Simulated assay, not measured.
Amino acid sequence: MTLPFSRTREDVVDDLERQVSAMKREISSLRRSAAERGSRAYDEVTSRGSHAYDDVAEIVADLLGQLSRRSRPGRREVKRQARIAGAAVRDNPKTTALVGLAALGLAAALLMRR
């Protein structure tokens, strides 16, 4: 029967090398898992941003319809601003999605404080 402290230096080095190798494999697995989760989260945020853009475009279209019945000069200005905002959202969907999520998070945090 050998005692644990009676092992040779080579046995200890071999054991440590096996542990390091196992840790490297585990880290590699964790990295792959994190990359997959990050990719899924990115896809979800992009999809939600696209849906949010569609919802906002629909609301703006409704508002423009209401304005068209009221006044011509105001309608033109709102339409111009809506085109500028729409172009900004189309050009930067990731930023728009992140800003939207941040705004929702801030609103949720404020509501939770009450």
Rank of each mutant, 00 (worst) to 15 (best):
V13D: 01
P93C: 14
T95Q: 12
V99C: 07
G105T: 02
R7Y: 11
S71N: 12
R9D: 03
S33I: 01
D62C: 09
A52R: 12
L101F: 13
A82P: 08
A107M: 10
L101G: 02
A97P: 14
D62Q: 14
A34P: 04
T96I: 03
A88P: 00
R40D: 02
R114E: 08
Q81H: 15
Y42R: 03
A22R: 08
S28R: 07
Y42C: 00
V20S: 08
V60W: 00
K94C: 01
T95R: 06
S33G: 03
I59N: 05
R31F: 02
S6I: 02
S47Q: 10
R31M: 04
T8Y: 15
R75I: 04
S6C: 01
S28V: 04
A107D: 13
R40A: 06
M112F: 13
A35H: 08
D54L: 13
S21A: 05
L3C: 04
D55P: 02
R37S: 02
T2P: 11
R31N: 01
G100F: 10
A41W: 10
D91L: 11
L63H: 12
S71P: 06
Q66Y: 11
T95V: 08
A103C: 05
S47G: 07
E26M: 12
I59M: 07
G65Y: 13
R7A: 03
A57Q: 14
I59F: 13
M112R: 13
A109P: 04
A61N: 00
V56M: 06
D43C: 02
E17V: 03
R83G: 07
E77Y: 12
R32I: 01
G65C: 11
D54M: 06
D62T: 09
A107E: 07
A108N: 14
R83F: 06
G86A: 15
P73F: 11
D62L: 15
K24T: 03
A41G: 01
M1C: 01
V60A: 01
A61M: 00
T46I: 01
Y42K: 04
V20D: 07
Y42F: 02
A103P: 02
R69Y: 14
S6F: 10
V56W: 15
D43S: 03
T8H: 14
G100C: 09
R25F: 07
S21L: 00
A109G: 07
I27R: 08
S33C: 09
D55K: 12
P93Q: 05
P4W: 11
A82D: 09
S50P: 03
A82G: 09
T96V: 07
E10D: 10
G49Q: 06
D55N: 06
G74E: 15
R9C: 00
S28H: 05
R32G: 03
A88Y: 10
A88E: 15
N92Q: 05
R25Q: 05
S39M: 03
R18G: 04
G74Y: 15
N92M: 06
V89Y: 14
V89R: 14
R80A: 11
P93H: 05
S21Q: 01
A87S: 06
T46P: 00
A41S: 02
I84N: 00
L63E: 13
G86L: 08
G38K: 02
A103I: 11
V13R: 15
V99F: 15
K79Y: 11
T8Q: 09
H51L: 04
T2Q: 10
A87R: 08
H51A: 03
R80H: 12
H51E: 13
